[in-house]
Amino acid sequence: MTTTAIQTRAVVKRYGSLVAVGGVDLSIAPGEGVALLGPNGAGKTTLVEMIEGLIHPDEGEVLVEGLDWKHHATRIRGRLGTCLQDAKLPERLRVDETLVLFSSFHGRGKDRAEELLELVDLGASRKQLTGKLSGGQRQRLALACAIAGGPRILILDEPTTGVDPAARRQIWDILKALRAQGATLLLTTHFMDEAEFLCDRVVLLEHGRILEQGTVPELLERGGATSLDDLFLKLAGRRILE
């Protein structure tokens, strides 16, 4: 039995002369919730995409439940649920068709799609085209697609960006319930309250490197700050939401 759900060892990713991720060591235990916090361009998405196996690190290693992407890609994909930043689901598919489709990618049938509809509370919109959904409904649908295979590990890239507070709260409740069932959660976010509500640990990222990590109270005490944004300003010289 592996003791880590996700582990990165000195991972580096460069785009030409730009170092997007510059040697990150990160270890996430099974069932743990971790938030990656940082402003735009801090390297959050690049790090997450390396963990998701969508891009390969130039240096270092990524392990998911002890398996490496090079030799166990399909097995890892079966254990991960991913929600990409700004991904646009097929707009002319209906909600139920979309969920049947994504369930099929994991070898699951229509009954799974029905469960998902109920879980994300989209039963009333099941026949609506996804392109006609509100921002909050669309994010809930994206989340439902991410968990279609019943993943042990959830990786969500800014899952509540662009949705109203009520819809955000709804998504939080779903994620909280999934965590209560034992799911590991890695999410990137700009929102301090989201990180605090959903995660056990926060990792502050800037210029592709980890600035600090720990629980929110630990970080605030260590940095003598009143909020994570103030702490980030002290450490990096700019605000997270800049």
Binding site: L54, R77, L84, A87, K88, L89, C145
Partner: peptide
């Protein structure tokens, strides 16, 4: 639309 990536992240 990032759908290729999304599809590719599934089994």
């Amino acid at each position: 639309r990032k759908l290729l990536r999304l599809f590719a992240s599934t089994p």
